[in-house]
Design a protein around this nucleic acid. Structure first.
Lengths: 204, 204
DNA sequence: GTAGAATATTTAACGGAGTTAATTACTAAC
DNA sequence: GTTAGTAATTAACTCCGTTAAATATTCTAC
């Protein structure tokens, strides 16, 4: 792994490459395990999965999605989405209702309880980031965010077999998704406009 | 979430905070899904889990670990480690042998096949990183790695309830683990010295 | 030196989340 | 109006994790 002469353009040394591999992995693991899974378990006694939470968040942002859409969004099969929705519905976090236009379709909307949960999670997540923010200057934070974006895009574009590629923003979406041209029909796109405010649908 | 007045020190704007949350999540997801899971599935027709691969990697780096140690390392229960080892052993990637000193203990070592797999994965991973490397200057890559480290450390230190905290380097380890004082007895530490070369144990 | 506590691993029983295939209900095409 | 297609669900299964119990070995202490 840290052998000499790995064949590639020798732009970076083996040591640099190792550091990059090491810290990108560690960063990814720490974000996922500490900032996401651990926090989620603290916020929900009923311990939701990350998938289930992302589902809840998407539904909170737009109360007009149907099951198939959110399945695509999560990157899972429709039956898996159904089961996740069952669980969220059982907890009173989301509701199902039949679509008027197409009576096969089920529309999903969040309850006030569901939206409160999303908001609580996001607030706490931002709080936990405070020590991180304090470890950087404002300019550094800006630069870091841009580099993370550049890194992710470079990786994703290289991979573009055109398949089910997605930026995996998990509802941290922006007006203009940078990978839309790779993956048409992203549910995030359908949610555009409601942006980041916790504007749910009607209450039940 | 992007509400005004989130209470915290107003060092960063809500927009900045959102960008940071968005891109740290996206980066973490892309690393995990594209650079790790997807790549692993391409390399192994028998589709190993990330856990199983990390286990194999650890064993490849040091052929003297016992089951309980690698269970700690993976952050799973001993029975889970046993089953993962069963699978790797069934594929001829690792071997079990009884410890001479303590006949309760099982020592684990990798086969040449196992080490080849690890090496192949790491080589391909480095290759996939080429477009990323080309998207940055050498100095930027250095800076990025250091920032990822600083970010991860800040997050981990803030969290330090002293529990099972770990840097989650998954065997991308360095001589001096920055969180050792938080988590004594890390299996990575026991592996120190063999560093990153693919130096396994005896062959069977 | 042997009884009893502690430790290392495995087995057994089970749960949760994912999969594919089949079913049900509805819509759309011709 | 029959037929093909689509949305969602149910059924049957797999995989990876869990805790509790079983087994084998070592350590402690009288």
């Amino acid at each position: 792994m840290t052998k000499p002469g790995n064949g590639d353009a020798q732009k970076v040394s083996d040591g640099q490459l190792f550091e990059l591999l090491r810290y990108s992995h560690i960063f990814a693991s720490v974000i996922r395990e500490i900032l996401e899974i651990k926090l989620l378990n603290e916020v929900t006694p009923n311990s939701l999965t990350l998938s289930q939470f992302h589902l809840l968040k998407l539904i909170s942002l737009n109360g007009k999605h149907q099951v198939g859409q959110v399945a695509d969004f999560l990157g899972v099969s429709p039956p898996a989405a159904t089961k996740n929705i069952d669980k969220l519905e059982g907890l009173g976090l989301v509701y199902r209702r039949q679509s008027k236009g197409d009576r096969r379709a089920t529309l999903l909307s969040s309850s006030a309880k569901g939206r409160r949960l999303v908001e609580k999670y996001e607030t706490l997540k931002a709080e936990r980031l405070t020590p991180v923010i304090n470890a950087f200057s404002t300019d550094e934070l800006d630069q870091l965010a841009r580099w993370l974006e550049r890194f992710s895009l470079a990786l994703l574009h290289a991979e573009e077999s055109g398949e089910g590629l997605c930026f995996r923003c998990s509802a941290y979406f922006e007006e203009q998704c940078p990978v839309t041209h790779l993956h048409e029909g992203c549910p995030y796109q359908k949610v555009r406009g409601s942006h980041v405010t916790t504007t749910g649908e009607k209450e039940a």
